[in-house]
Amino acid sequence: MQDQLIPDATLVSSYIKGQESALETLIVRHKQKVYSFIYSKVYDKDVAEDIFQDTFIKVINTLKRGAYNEEGKFLPWVMRISHNLVIDYFRKNNRMPKFDNAGEFSIFSVLSDTSLNAEKSIIKEQVESDVRRLVEELPDDQKEVLLMRIYKDMSFKEISDKTGVSINTALGRMRYALINLRKIIEKHNIVLTN
């Protein structure tokens, strides 16, 4: 109660003379007003806390250096310092805008993770093993051409050289291999999509 009776000006001059407790009284007396003012501008608790701290650091520095000369107008002076710091904060933020990803455009629509998730990679493995089993069912000559073409990425010219058949025969075997695979897939209703 007694703290309320002492005017700000008296507390300020006591503090300048070295009475540290006077500062505590001043801060406790005005912290709510100053903090609320800052928060009402920045709407962020952490930022408000930082600006509040910076405000009083400036106040302390100025008072300790003996550069304070606004007698009896302590609170308006503190408010003006905090106001200036709020402006500095917004200036700095405008120069370096933060990307909050709150707008219509989402950065994640451009930057996507192309690797498959766990479910899709399991499905992919299953599909691949199913296809391998189906290929195993093909007659040997068709299977040979298909493996060379699809898995070894050889041209039909290379396949014909390696197997000793004509290119047309290799093409025909490839065609029958695909037809037969489709037949087996349709017959057993196998789903091979991811």
Partner: peptide, 11 residues
């Protein structure tokens, strides 16, 4: 709204 106790102590 008030600043945290730590902030005041720090000051």
């Amino acid at each position: 709204m008030q600043p945290q106790e730590e902030t005041v102590k720090f000051l």
